[in-house]
């Protein structure tokens, strides 16, 4: 059995290694949802890869709202692999900090609150 601190360190290091590897090795093929959208729009056969330039026709979709994320698809215009790596590391640590802060905050609230 390893200590909390060791578990945290190893866990975070492993998460960062996975995230950084993803920048270099993750598949660029469409995911299951995008593949389904391409199939439904006649741009992909169910069991065959789509053309590399196949794109989902947004005009055929019902959504009316468009939000521009600062780093769409985990990258930014002109980004290098280094930039993408930084973005993924920041995202991973941000996920950790958000859960940590909200978790700690709620536990503090439960100690000082009505209960």
């Amino acid at each position: 059995m390893i200590s909390n601190r060791t578990f945290l360190t190893i866990g975070l290091v492993v998460a960062l290694i996975i995230g950084i590897s993803a920048v270099f090795f993750a598949s660029g093929d469409p995911d299951g949802l995008d593949s389904t959208a391409l199939v439904m729009q006649g741009q992909k056969d169910l069991t065959q890869p789509a053309n590399p330039d196949a794109e989902i026709d947004e005009s055929a979709l019902p959504g009316e709202f468009e939000y521009s994320a600062p780093f769409p698809d985990y990258t930014i215009e002109g980004a290098t692999k280094m930039t993408d790596t930084v973005l993924l590391v920041v995202g991973t640590i941000l996920a950790l900090l958000l859960v940590f802060a909200l978790g700690k905050g709620l536990k503090k609230f439960s100690r000082t609150g009505s209960s």
Partner: peptide, 17 residues
């Protein structure tokens, strides 16, 4: 802290298609 590490792991693994 352990939940937070799990969140980091989930985030990283979700980026790995």
């Amino acid at each position: 802290p352990l939940v937070a590490v799990l969140a980091a792991g989930v985030f990283a693994l979700q980026a790995f298609n």
